[in-house]
């Protein structure tokens, strides 16, 4: 064993580690330092701030719900069913992770937009127009955030002991019962951790949202969009908005840490 303490850490590792930490923490500190603390309360009470915050919380929660509904079964397929082309499917699932969100938003527009592959058919048949609606925000956020959930849940499924599922099947449980009563409870911490990541990613979504859903205050203007647009005319207001985002994220992480994230 190496000795603990500073003497055991080589300088060549300690220095970059310290710089890396500073690089992550300093910008957050700057937000706190430059925040207009005196006018903070008044600025927070401004209707467009509350509007954007409400919209952000609503859409990222809805997006997370959609990701859970679709992503958990997808993760289960990837982890438990040996089908041809599984590796390829997994690569496809991670695509939104590496794709620039703006490109993702454009891609969504091409599919679900007014003249898009599916969109052209949506309006005349169902009377649904997606672009410039809150639903479009949810779709854009779900598109970008889903890989976080799928990868996290798939990892949890792979790490969980599949023999519990065999034991349940031997006792007479159908595959659906096994999934519901054994698999899900066993990977619940992994699902929760994935949902938190997914929710945080959705909350911060910018590129795909502004491309696909536009920037209508009260309808599609979420917090990140509000930050960006306020920055030009009123930098202090942008700082306040960023600060709100920071506090919301920190609060969620702290609340969930003890219950879920640590155990996964």
């Amino acid at each position: 064993m190496l000795p603990d303490g500073a003497c055991g850490v080589p300088v060549i590792l300690a220095v970059p580690a310290a710089i890396g930490l500073a690089f992550l923490v300093l910008p957050l500190t700057a937000l706190l330092v430059r925040a207009p603390w005196r006018t903070l309360a008044a600025r927070l009470a401004e209707p467009h701030v509350l509007e954007a915050l409400r919209l952000s919380l609503l859409t990222s929660s809805a997006a997370t719900a959609a990701c859970l509904l679709l992503g958990v079964p997808l993760a289960w397929m990837l982890a438990r069913v040996a089908f041809r082309g599984r590796r390829f499917v997994r690569a496809l699932v991670t695509a939104p992770l590496v794709l620039p969100p703006v490109a993702g938003g454009l891609a969504l527009l091409l599919v679900l937009g007014n003249g898009g592959l599916v969109g052209a058919w949506l309006e005349p048949v169902l009377g649904v127009r997606l672009p410039l609606t809150t639903t479009a925000v949810v779709l854009a956020e779900a598109f970008v955030a889903m890989p976080f959930l799928v990868l996290s849940v798939e990892g949890a499924l792979r790490a969980s002991d599949a023999r519990f599922e065999e034991a349940a099947a031997i006792l007479g449980a159908s595959r659906w019962t096994v999934f519901r009563r054994v698999t899900l409870p066993l990977v619940a911490p992994g699902i929760a951790a994935g949902a938190v990541l997914c929710w945080a990613r959705a909350l911060g979504e910018f590129g795909a949202t502004i491309t696909f859903a536009g920037n209508l205050p009260g309808r599609t203007q979420t917090m990140p969009l509000a930050v960006y647009l306020t920055l030009r005319k009123d930098p202090e207001a942008a700082i306040v908005l960023s600060l709100v985002l920071l506090v919301v994220c920190a609060a969620v992480l702290v609340c969930l840490r003890d219950r879920w994230v640590r155990t996964s």
Partner: peptide, 19 residues
């Protein structure tokens, strides 16, 4: 399929459902 065979099985590490 496994769930319709009416067999019982006890494994070395029991595999009681922890939850």
């Amino acid at each position: 399929t496994v769930d319709r065979r009416r067999v019982g099985m006890v494994l070395q590490d029991h595999l009681l459902f922890p939850h």
